[in-house]
Design a protein around this nucleic acid. Sequence first.
DNA 1: ATCGAAATAT
DNA 2: AATATTTCGA
Length: 535
Amino acid sequence: MVCTPDELVEWEDFPKGLRVLLLDRDVNYASEIRSKLEGMDYIVSTFCDEDEALSAAFSNSEVFHVAIVEVSTVKCDGSFKFLQMAKGLPTVMTASAQCLTTTMKCIALGAIEVLNKPICEDKLRNIWQHVVHKAYSAVAESPKQESTIRMVKDEEIRDKLRGGMPCLFDGGCNDEHDRSPGDDKYPAPSTPQLKQVRLLDDAGCHDQTNWSSEKDSVAHYEESKSVETTSCNAAPDMSLEAGEQMHESVVKEENNSADGCKSESDTFPGQKNEAETSSLGGNTRKQSKVSESPSPCGAKTNRKKMKVDWTSDLHKKFVQAVEQLGVDQAIPSRILELMKVEGLTRHNVASHLQKYRMHRRHALPKREERRISVRPKDTMQSSYYYQHKPVMAYPPPYHSNLTLLANQACPVWATPGSHTSGLHAWGPPYQTWPWKTCAAADVWGCPVMPPLHGSYSYYPQQNGYNGGVDISRNSMPPNSHNDHHLADEVVNHIVKEAISKPWLPLPLGLKPPSTESVLSELSKQGISSIPPPSQ
DNA sequence: ATCGAAATAT
DNA sequence: AATATTTCGA
């Protein structure tokens, strides 16, 4: 029932001869519509009973391209039944009374559009667009791909807008006028995942867009894709390129709530396969990406740089990568590798890293201060323990990589986090997007980040940057040659702690990554005599 | 060529 | 004001 793009292309005088199934209990109205449709060279079969209509729809003898079904006020079930049964058939619902609920239900059940009676002639005439839309969206859906980020490049957008479906959707017709809200802008049900590509600057919809370009173009993307039924229109003029454009630019969205499970997709550049999202703090994020396709008119490709919107998901990936590498070893190129995000550049990462570090630098001293002020008499040990609170607070069953990360990262340098930030901000598995959401910089990077050197202060900082607090003064001689000894003590403590509370996640030092981090930190402190960590 | 910090841009 | 990009010296 769904035409293929090829069929459409070969359909010479499309939409003439389009077969319309008309289901309406009002016989008079039905025949009125019928004659209108026939005047438009459509071939119409009318029915007043959904069962008849259905059997006709499924019969082999008759082929329908589109259905117009009345959603009866008295017996809407029948209409819904039709909708549900005839999924493959693009179906326009007609209703005599405006009812949001009904409309929603229709759409939910797959209706392509819900129109109010009396149906205006233009809309009637334009029902062919649904067929086309369906045809292409069916094609578009097939190549499945997961993605992590949505990229919208100028050209792609422009292509969509201009070249996209030249005559079908833009068709030299006025893009948008006399559009009655809610009436004619429903995308085909088969493309529910049509991505809203929004501008970064637009209405601050940061959470939706990962990539965007300059602020033009995209605005009407969605509308362009949805069938325009109102405006005047010329005879459709199919072009194959149009179709291809169409499905090249398919955007797929997905949305799984993986709590702290880390994506392990091994994506290589060029391959599209990349997944995972997590819902954090009630913010379920959608991610998607426009499959990249070299613009045929490639001339001035990528004039402007894409702008990366660091959503929490992206950031999460980033953070994971940084952790995996250890803050010290985390350099843009490595991070980039680990992130495996297609389209992301080293520059993007570098920039983000810079910001990230900056935030940390600012956040940590504060925290440090607070901690000290709360427990002024803390010895090294107790403060150490205190620092671990949040870590320990992790419910044991954090599996897989996440557990690893949590364990590896939290230990020594887990930022003390004030009481509040401790549990709250650390909240399972992953922090929320810190920059935009957290007023208090404290939260920044608390979760699992080893703070930058200079921020943790068991010892006097040789860079003099320890927030004016010298913990070591209370417990340790401030000489750097004690560091070694001190480190041992720390480790001992951790071990002791772990042994006495076996039900808690293993803290620092009991897992290779942590050790590595510790050692690298130590070496930063000038202790190079410690043998390199074994992975 | 890459890194990171600073300067710019949005 | 926040945050992304570009530039520039090492």
